[in-house]
Design a binder for these strands. Structure first.
Length: 234
DNA sequence: AAGCGGGTCAACCGCCGCGAG
DNA sequence: CCTCGCGGCGGTTGACCCGCT
């Protein structure tokens, strides 16, 4: 016997979400919340699996999502956190307000990973590739994570992290968040008033993310120790 | 202009952990 | 203590886009 599917596969729609479905999901969650994801599609009148609804909401429709490219500082933080946490994307995402685990995971796999390899850094161990080969052969355990972090940071001072690939200035990065998906902005226009009443956190329109992307962030200081100290990360 | 290949990202799949019964 | 159901997580897939030849 195989594993029981998460939802009744019969009559469950798959694939990309339509504007109509998005609208239904948004208005349902804004008015009723999501007590139980399994029940959401039925109550919202969607032919979708509960998981699919949750994913769509958390990764795309959530009002506190920050869209657009990661700022160099955010990118550096992702690298730093990955060196400590590994592929625990949800934990990493938790440190980046408005970013989703899926988004960071995608970014890591498509962009940062290659960038690190290009820089000669192993994206898995965060150690220099050549040195790592030596350490593997000599079974050296002397290199600690913090050490590799420092190596990474020092590379940053060489202009590698803030390399020409990262030509996006903070202001450009923040302006990217303004260029929201036309569909989303359309959807949110319909719900803005509702949203303001129902949500504690502000909508995309109300947030000046330039204050995040453009100003000096705590992790700009070159370390996110304070974050890691404060949070229980298992 | 058409074909191809690489990059990007939304979405799915299946496993895992946790809490309730 | 055990079982079951649910939400969450990470890996993977596939459609779409874009630049290059």
């Amino acid at each position: 016997m195989g594993r029981r599917p998460c939802c009744d596969k019969l009559g469950v729609k798959k694939g990309p979400w339509s504007a109509e479905e998005d609208k239904k999901l948004i208005s349902f969650i804004l008015t009723s919340g999501h007590c139980c994801w399994r029940a959401v599609p039925k109550l919202a009148g969607l032919l979708r699996c509960g998981k699919s609804c949750r994913l769509r909401w958390t990764n795309y429709l959530r009002p506190d999502l920050k869209r657009g490219l990661l700022s160099p500082a955010e990118e550096q933080l992702v690298i730093d956190l990955h060196a400590r946490l590994g592929n625990r994307w949800s934990k990493i995402a938790a440190m980046l307000p408005g970013r989703t685990d899926n988004e960071i995971k995608n970014l890591w796999n498509t962009h940062i990973k290659k960038k690190l390899v290009k820089m000669g850094v192993d994206p898995v161990t965060h150690k220099p590739l050549d040195r790592q080969a030596n350490s593997v052969s000599s079974q050296s355990t002397a290199t600690t994570e913090s050490k590799s972090d420092r190596q990474l940071q020092s590379r940053g001072t060489d202009g590698q992290i803030q390399s020409s690939e990262n030509t996006l200035s903070p202001t450009e990065a923040s302006s990217n968040t303004d260029g929201a998906d036309p569909l989303l902005s359309c959807l949110w226009e319909d719900n803005t008033s509702l949203l303001d009443e129902l949500w504690q956190f502000p909508s995309n329109k109300d947030v000046d993310y330039s204050s995040v992307a453009g100003q000096v962030l705590p992790w700009d200081e070159g370390s996110c120790e304070w974050l890691l100290d404060d949070q229980a990360l298992g």
